[in-house]
Design a protein around this nucleic acid. Structure first.
Length: 659
RNA sequence: GCCCGAGUAGCUCAGUCGGUAGAGCAAUUCACUCGUAAUGAAUAGGUCAGGAGUUCAAUUCUCCUCUCGGGCUCCA
């Protein structure tokens, strides 16, 4: 392996195999520390992210492309800021970090004016000028007071400087990894300057000079609150995407197009599944017959699995009096997410944002024995949550949705076993729908206040961890990320184009059993408190349907397809035979229709394909004579002269096949 | 809710520098009866999202409202 590194000053340096940043230390002066270098390893260009502390000690070297990419994105965001400040004198800039796929930068324009799409073109042109000028990124450090003076006209920068130079009490300064400012314990901050006219507060690192950049595209303008706080001023945010080379940029833009083609709202319209009449209001959908059929299949499958999985079914009302929500704590902790109350007959009713308290009522309806546990109550329960009108998004985010919700009441002793078998159940169902790539997250006890004793937290957390380990499931730990009432597992699935969707959640709860004073009689005759587990597998049926649509790009597997087979007689004389075939398939439990010969065959085939029907069968003279079919399987070439019997076996296998 | 953008026939879109609109597909009718991704013809279909203002005249300009899209925030 040979590594060739180009230094910020333009000279280059050859390094042998196994070289580290230590080998570079001598070549990089203190003023150029924290530079990202572009190197070639065996002739192939890689981005090296070299971080040096105080110009002498080596901290890190990596040949990981993505870290180099982060640097490119971050540097591009600086160029964006430089362009905007130049084009809009008097504007001020806030923060501009690299993000997944690109970067953004937040600005405040003079007089509160806003960017338009045409502005983006002007900014883009200016950025390319800066890049063509190949300006070097030069690092400097200064005291907080000098920095505040330098940024006298930029209140957001000043605020940031003050924040990062204020000690958080642990001697390490403020930890703010999400932001790209320099964070300092000794009261100094770092800046990067690339012309006399443009200098920005920044932790770095950056590419050596702007000439390294250029494979970017400004994507959109959006409003964003300063520091994400609704009560702070709204800034103008420009989003961009940036890549190491032209090919990657193109590939990314192509992926965006692919994702747009799979948009469930578009497919729902094209395939006549669901619509969102404006008359109903934001986030409210009506399910058309075909969409409703697919949904019913999903729900039936879920019910069937639960019935055979040791669950008992329940139905509960959609509203309840305020005292229920006071006892459950929802009115204290979740009021913002609830629909407004209704006053009736001197009492106050709320639509339910969750099903839990109702299932608790079922538990409490009689005295429970340890012999009754675990008790698993299941309901496809529709809940209502007040989402911001700007936040609703097709089926993925709506104001009313149906959870495949269950609450399991168990003894402490059985908690671990229950959690383990539960994860089994979850994965088995997700796999049936065609998801095979999982990423789990285990969220543990928060450091702040939480309820429940150490023993039970340990048991539950260990139970969840064991369940994950037993399944060899890839998981990350979100330390302290659990709710105050218990630890949880969230399961993300990856779809066909690699996007992650959070679907399942398994959550232990030590709080509601206390609040509702749940009890069971143990084997020794003592009254004990059960533990509760909340769990949803699909999450919300509506959202799951949306995810499935995007995953399959509308081409549902046979068992879920609303129309499984269409039979097309070539001409009217073949109609009787087509009907015979249809009847046989229908008898076998197949969803099948005949499309009669009023339109030309080509047109009917096209319509079937466009509707993504898994099998389009064509029957003509030869088929009538020989009891055969012409088979157009979705995504495959035409097969002629397939025996009807052979096709019957094939479709029967497909209908059974939960992927 | 807030910032930016959008809303023209069932769908996808043109168009009107202010004089009340057009195409393709879909629908309906007729003819064609066809072997694998759009047969031909005809008909019908729009208070140009809704309301107000300016104007002799508004789909077009202005304001407000509604809905949608992209973000912020939040989450299933």
């Amino acid at each position: 392996m040979s590594i060739s590194v180009q230094l910020p000053d333009g000279s280059s340096r050859e390094l042998g195999a196994g070289a580290t940043a230590a080998d570079l230390a001598a070549d990089i002066g203190p003023g150029l520390a924290k530079a990202a270098l572009i190197a070639t390893i065996d002739g192939e260009q890689v981005d090296l992210n070299v971080e040096l502390t105080d110009g002498t000690t080596v901290a890190l070297i990596t040949d990981r492309q993505d870290e180099g990419l982060e640097t490119i994105r971050h540097s591009t965001s600086h160029v964006l800021a430089q362009a905007v400040l130049e084009l809009w004198p008097g504007s001020t800039f806030a923060i501009g970090p690299p993000i997944e796929h690109g970067f953004y930068y937040d600005f405040e324009l003079p007089g509160g004016s806003t960017f338009t799409d045409e502005d983006l073109e002007r900014i883009d042109a200016k950025m390319r000028e800066i890049i063509d000028a190949d300006q070097p990124f030069i690092r400097s450090e200064m005291s907080a007071s000098d920095a505040l003076e330098l940024m006298a006209d930029h209140q957001y920068k000043r605020e940031t400087i003050e924040r990062v130079t204020t000690d958080s009490g642990d001697g390490l300064g403020v930890h703010d990894d999400d932001l790209s400012e320099e964070v300092s314990a000794d009261g100094t901050v770092s800046f990067y300057r690339n012309t006399d006219a443009f200098i920005d507060l920044c932790r770095g690192p950056h590419v050596p000079s702007t000439g390294r950049l250029g494979h970017f595209k400004l994507m959109s303008v959006a409003g964003a609150y300063w520091r994400g706080d609704e009560k702070r001023p709204m800034l103008q945010r420009i989003y961009g995407t940036a890549w190491a080379n032209k090919k990657d940029l193109k590939a990314h833009l192509h992926r965006l197009e692919e994702a747009a083609k799979r948009d469930h709202r578009k497919l729902a319209n094209e395939l006549d599944l669901v619509s969102w009449p404006a008359e109903l209001g934001p986030g409210l959908a009506v399910w058309h017959p075909k969409g409703a059929l697919v949904r019913k299949i999903i729900e039936d499958y879920s019910r069937d699995r639960h019935e055979h999985g040791g669950y008992e079914f329940a139905y509960t009302p959609h509203i309840a009096k305020s005292n229920l929500w006071e006892t459950s704590g929802h009115l204290d902790f979740y009021a913002d997410g609830m629909y407004p109350p209704m006053e009736m007959d001197g009492a106050t009713y709320y639509p339910k944002p969750m099903n839990c308290p109702f299932h608790v009522m079922i538990y409490k309806s009689s005295q429970r024995s340890y012999r009754d546990l675990p008790m698993r109550i299941f309901e496809l329960g529709t809940v209502y949550r007040y989402e911001l009108s700007g936040a609703v998004h097709g089926l993925l985010r709506s104001r009313g949705f149906t959870q495949d919700d269950s609450h399991i009441f168990t003894t402490r002793e059985n908690l671990q076993e229950e959690l383990t078998s539960l994860l089994d159940f979850v994965l088995s169902i997700l796999r049936a729908f065609g998801f095979h790539d999982f990423q789990a997250k285990l969220s543990t006890r928060p450091t702040e206040k939480s309820v429940g004793d150490d023993e039970i937290w340990d048991m539950a957390t260990e139970g969840l961890r064991q369940a994950l380990e037993n399944h060899g499931l890839d998981y990350i730990v979100d330390d302290g990320g659990g709710a105050f009432y218990g630890p949880k597992i969230d399961v993300d699935v990856k779809d066909a184009i690699g996007r992650a969707w959070q679907l399942s959640t398994i959550q232990a709860d030590f709080n509601l059993p206390e609040r509702f004073e749940l009890e069971y009689v143990a084997s020794d005759g003592e009254r004990k408190r059960p533990v509760m587990i909340h769990r949803a597998l699909l999450g919300s049926v509506e959202r799951f349907f949306g995810v499935l649509l995007e995953h399959y790009a509308g081409a549902f597997p046979v068992w879920l397809a609303p129309m499984q087979v269409q039979v097309l007689p070539v001409a009217e004389v073949h109609a009787d035979y087509a009907e015979t075939v249809r009847a046989r398939l229908a008898d076998a439990g197949c969803r099948v229709d005949v499309v009669d010969a009023t339109d030309p065959l080509g047109k009917r085939v096209r319509a079937g394909k466009t509707e993504k029907v898994p099998y389009v069968l064509v029957v003509g003279d030869d088929d009538v004579a020989n009891s055969t079919l012409g088979v157009n399987a979705r995504g495959q070439d035409v097969e002629r002269d397939v025996a009807v019997d052979a096709f019957m076996e094939r479709i029967a296998a497909d209908i059974d096949n939960k992927v």
